[in-house]
């Protein structure tokens, strides 16, 4: 199973949309609260190259924002 991580904040519509998409497509994911995991978040945003929530990490790639096409491509 591909490991998917999503870095979120409590008030974030794109985070909600992404999690809904993962659930609907039976994609297992781990949610990381960015307020409680500062170091992991910093590593993730540096990997994504953007300071924008959500950050989605799939395998060795990370990107910011909810983008279905990027997720599908990375999960292939």
């Amino acid at each position: 199973m591909t490991k998917v991580k999503i870095y979120t904040t409590p008030i974030c519509l794109e985070c909600e949309k992404a999690k809904k998409y993962f659930k609907e497509n039976n994609i297992e994911y781990e949610e990381i609260d960015t307020f409680e995991n500062k170091e992991a978040t910093e590593k993730a945003f540096k990997k994504a190259g953007q300071k924008r929530i959500p950050i989605i990490e799939i395998r060795d790639k990370a990107f910011s924002g909810f983008d279905k096409k990027k997720i599908e491509k990375q999960l292939k």
Binding site: T9, C12, T34, F45, I53
Partner: peptide, 11 residues
């Protein structure tokens, strides 16, 4: 730079 402080504030 953010245009949504509540979304990105944790960073």
């Amino acid at each position: 730079i953010t245009y949504c402080a509540v979304c990105d504030g944790s960073l």
